[in-house]
Design a protein around this nucleic acid. Structure first.
Length: 295
DNA sequence: AATGGCCCCAACCGCATACGA
DNA sequence: CTCGTATGCGGTTGGGGCCAT
């Protein structure tokens, strides 16, 4: 049993919008503003589903849409954001003013995928397609206890090797904090090893080399390269977390929800990332527990 | 000129989430 | 807390346009 339809199907137009319908929608929103999509069609004299009106407005009629070809800079930005966020088109679109999630999704599927493949890069994993040891761990035990050995991580610019790390599952569920020079993190995989985990030095200096996730439940200790997800992102998303409170750093911290994580922990320069990404409507709504102390 | 294949993208659909009663 | 409704999101579809034959 699915949900009941959002509108009466019988008296609803489908397919391409006519010029007249566009004008009706534009005029209505000019006067009344966005929102109340369910009641909008009737009020605007449109025989359309509210969803359809919303989509038409957001993806096509909105006055702030950019139109035109994507620039090389936009291409690279999309690629970088996708490597970080995956198919979170709305989040990616939020970083490209004037572009819609639908537009970016289409552009990804029709252009960028091909572009990456021609560069020898797998569009989903953002790894080189022909290099060895790049196949993700596809262990079948969904909730395998997995250990991350961070032996290979060290802070290039300090001698004490007493770094602070964060481990992030960008698709959504697991996050750990800790510090030290020889760290091991226990965490639970959520998607048969396909999930990406990002291990980033919390110190402004960056980890030097990728490490491995060793699946202890697997006899052949399958290896997953951890991507230095944020290191290569040359935009506002570059994340270098400041020194944070001892309360957090002394223990692993697991956040179940990605948005919650972003709301509370991502810190960027003098502003938290949730603000930068637009998760936050008002300046004082974010209760980041991370001190904001970046220079 | 007709036809077929491919590409692109607007639009749809189903599901997830938010939110209010 | 539960339920119903509204909205948002991401995957998919289908039709129009373009190009080669």
């Amino acid at each position: 049993m699915g949900r009941s339809p959002c509108c009466e199907k019988e008296h609803t137009n489908k397919g391409a919008w006519t010029k007249e319908e566009d004008e009706r929608l534009i005029n209505y929103i000019k006067v009344h503003g966005e929102g109340c999509w369910r009641s909008l069609p009737k009020a605007a004299g449109l025989q359309r589903c509210g969803k359809s009106c919303r989509l038409r407005w957001i993806n096509y009629l909105r006055p702030d849409l950019k139109r035109g070809n994507f620039t090389e800079e936009e291409d690279e930005l999309i690629i970088n954001l996708h490597s970080l966020l995956g198919n979170k088109w709305s989040l990616i679109a939020a970083k490209l003013p004037g572009r819609t999630d639908n537009e970016i999704k289409n552009y990804w599927n029709t252009h960028i995928k091909r572009k990456l493949i021609s560069r020898g890069i797998d569009p989903q994993t953002h790894r080189r397609q022909n290099s060895a040891n790049t196949t993700p761990n596809t262990a079948t035990n969904t909730n395998a206890l997995t250990k991350l050995n961070t032996n290979n991580y060290h802070n290039k610019n300090t001698s004490n090797n007493n770094n602070t790390f964060q481990l992030i599952n960008v698709r959504g569920s697991t996050l750990h904090f800790g510090h030290g020079s020889n760290l091991e993190y226990d965490f639970t995989t959520t998607d048969k090893g396909h999930e990406k985990y990002y291990c980033t030095s919390i110190m402004p200096t960056i980890i030097s080399k990728s490490s491995n996730i060793i699946n202890e439940d697997s006899n052949n200790s399958s290896i997953v390269t951890i991507e230095e997800g944020y290191k290569e992102i040359n935009l506002e998303l570059s994340i270098s977390l400041p020194n944070y409170s001892s309360k957090i750093s002394s223990n692993h911290e697991v956040m179940k929800n990605q948005q919650h994580y972003m709301m509370r922990y991502h810190v960027l320069g003098s502003a938290c990332l949730c603000s930068t990404l637009g998760f936050q409507n008002k300046e004082n709504e974010c209760n980041c527990t991370m001190p904001i102390s970046m220079n």
